[in-house]
Design a protein around this nucleic acid. Structure first.
Lengths: 116, 116
DNA sequence: CTGTATCCATGATGATACTG
DNA sequence: CAGTATCATCATGGATACAG
């Protein structure tokens, strides 16, 4: 006899996927960085200038995480002076649909909350 | 002559919407709580039991925020003993499409990362 | 039961400096 | 330029107790 628990497991599994996603894109900097890189900032210094207020330490950490999640690509060109180029991956484009939904919801939500 | 800056403003605006959305649903507990309530836990104590590991302090805080964002509804029935009932709002349903996309992406992402 | 108050550990972030 | 190291600060979360 199949166990009806399957439903519960499935819900919990979905929550896990959800949290994976949140983990990858949430936080103060991830999306702004992705946008900055996507819009053309490719050098560490450029990105730092584009993303207002971020320190090199944090930028370094965030870029590493984004790279691990295959959303940005890091290319090193030579040694002195060090030249590193960051670009968004093709995989990064798979975020588009989801991000579009999030923007939609956020846009609507702002009005909703204003209704008091 | 129209200013081409419009594009940049728009991007920044979109980031703001995105961050609004993230602010509302991100974090360790928000979604699990919403799911628990949606699945039928309506009393404070029930929710705390359903959402594994959350303390009353944190649950209290999260519920307040969810209520402010009109995702849950709080109803008080009497005074002693205090009886409070939480339910998800109709508005909460507007999250569905977005959440579905996030689950999709997270599901796919887990495989993607495993590719090493 | 439904929370609030208090204390504490921990991690994240900022400021600043420094290396290759 | 592209980061890393160090230190101080601060917000958040957990544990526990307790109030209405």
């Amino acid at each position: 006899m199949p166990d009806i628990q399957i439903d519960k497991t499935s819900v919990e599994q979905q929550i896990r996927y959800l949290q994976d996603t949140l983990y990858v894109i949430s936080g103060k900097w991830k999306l702004p960085i992705l946008v900055a890189v996507h819009e053309g900032s490719s050098r560490f210094r450029d990105i730092q200038r584009s993303v207002n207020g971020i320190t090199s330490k944090v930028l370094s950490k965030e870029l590493k995480e984004l790279e691990q999640n295959k959303l940005v690509v890091r290319k090193v060109y030579d040694k002195s002076p060090p030249t590193v180029e960051y670009t968004t991956s093709n995989y990064c484009d798979t975020l588009q649909k989801m991000v579009a939904e999030m923007i939609d919801w956020g846009k609507n939500h702002r009005d909703k909350i204003r209704e008091k």
